[in-house]
Amino acid sequence: MVARAATAGRADVELIWRWLETVVDPEIPVVSVVDLGIVRDVRWHEPPSGPLLEVTVTPTYSGCPATEVITASIREALRHRGIESLRIVNRVAPPWTTDWISESGRRKLERYGIAPPRPLSPGATPPCPRCGAEDTECIARFGSTPCKALYRCRECLEPFDYFKCH
């Protein structure tokens, strides 16, 4: 453990990004904070007091209650890897957008039963993530969390969440 802590004292940034890929969103536990585009930057600083890792995160929605849990999870995951000197910076601008969700994040959402965000022409609805049917209808603009809307599939009749474009 000592050896690992020593190397983690200034671990490679690429490696840290991979560690952060294990930190999941508390509300959608199949996607990581990296998949969602919540982590914006990872960099080392060299103040006189010794190396300091700075992780910049951005909130998805202003009122997202998961933000504090996410910050705590990142802190815990990195401390577990031996990073003690850590600063998490919350950056509002530029504002988070669903365009920042990675391809792998979109696939994971769909497999989990959440239709990933996509540009929809007016009146169009997202296809059902369960059976792929196009014939779906909106039940509520706001689903279980602010980032989702509730839809129903007219083919398999199952309700599903749609991750709204933002």
């Binding site: 929605y61 202003s62 009122g63 997202c64 969390t145 602010p146």
Partner: peptide, 11 residues
């Protein structure tokens, strides 16, 4: 959810 958005903005 609308209330939550507004609360976040207020914060």
């Amino acid at each position: 959810n609308v209330a939550l958005d507004l609360l976040g903005q207020a914060r």
